[in-house]
Amino acid sequence: MYSTKPTSVNNKERISTKKKKDFNLKFIVIGDSRVGKTTLVEKYCGCHETGNNKNNNNHLYFHHTVTDKDWSCNLKIFDTAGQERYRSVTSSYYRGANGCIIAFDLSQETSFVNLENWYNDMLNYCNSSDVSVVLVGIQREGRERIVSTDRAQKFSDYLNLPYVEVNVDNQSEINDVFDNLAKNVVQRIQSREPVATMSTFTTTNLSKLVVKTESRFGCSCC
């Protein structure tokens, strides 16, 4: 995890800080409505302290800074602001994204099955060589889990994407998702290499895979 706000800077640290490389990155968070996307972003950014903004396309976006000893990231994290309910998320939302979180609710079967649509949208609207992607399963206290870790992992393995699960009440887990994605993007930019996990994929129909994983691992409540 990375510290977002240095607590003190002495002269030696000040000299070192000047040598840091600054990055301005755009992250997008996609997935079905009411799976917890906004909650993740708000908790990560501490939006009640920093506030949020709205751009001309009516997409909410939040600011956050991630720092490492060698670099600093100014993140602009975009939320769909409820537009996903009407399938009205346009190409402008995806354009220029460096990082993408595809989220689903572990207690909602439909949100898992619909990952196919969101993944294909991301491929259609983003430059696959410029964006790093992570699949995130969201767990909420008091809700019965429907999608097993095995099913979700099988799906993410097929797409060759990293998969993580987070509890919306665990700040550390939420921070790790965004911080690690930022680190991945910076490393990719610094190496000037395309994202291998995305370069070999094209838009496809993944419905059969979802059904196949269900039969292989048993019922969805396993």
Rank of each mutant, 00 (worst) to 15 (best):
M1P: 11
S3P: 05
K5M: 13
V9W: 12
V9G: 03
N11M: 15
S16T: 10
S16F: 13
S16G: 12
T17K: 12
T17C: 03
K18V: 08
K19P: 01
F27D: 13
F27H: 10
G31I: 06
D32Q: 05
D32N: 15
D32Y: 02
S33Q: 06
S33H: 02
V35M: 04
K37D: 10
K37W: 04
K43F: 04
Y44K: 08
Y44I: 11
Y44P: 15
Y44G: 11
C47Y: 00
H48Y: 01
T50D: 10
N52S: 11
N52T: 11
N53E: 06
K54S: 12
N55V: 00
N55C: 01
N57F: 07
N57K: 11
H63E: 10
T65M: 08
K69G: 07
W71P: 03
N74P: 05
L75Q: 09
F78W: 09
Q83F: 08
Q83D: 02
Y86G: 08
R87Q: 13
S88Y: 03
S92D: 14
R95M: 07
G96N: 08
G99C: 04
I102Y: 02
I102E: 02
F104W: 05
D105N: 14
D105M: 10
L106A: 12
L106C: 13
Q108M: 07
S111N: 09
V113S: 04
N117M: 06
W118C: 04
M122H: 09
S128N: 15
S128K: 15
D130W: 00
V131C: 07
V131W: 03
V131E: 05
V133K: 03
V136I: 15
G137D: 13
R140K: 15
E144F: 04
E144Y: 04
R145N: 08
I146S: 05
D150K: 15
D150V: 05
A152N: 01
F155K: 05
F155N: 03
F155Q: 03
F155Y: 15
L161Y: 15
L161K: 12
E165M: 14
V166F: 04
V168N: 11
N170G: 01
N170Y: 02
S172I: 10
V177T: 10
V177W: 04
N180L: 09
A182Q: 07
K183Y: 01
N184H: 05
Q190D: 09
Q190E: 14
R192M: 06
E193A: 11
P194V: 01
T197H: 11
T197S: 15
S199L: 12
T200R: 08
T202E: 12
T204H: 06
L206R: 02
L206F: 13
K208A: 14
L209C: 00
K212G: 14
T213S: 12
T213H: 08
E214W: 01
G218E: 08
C219K: 04
S220K: 00
S220G: 00
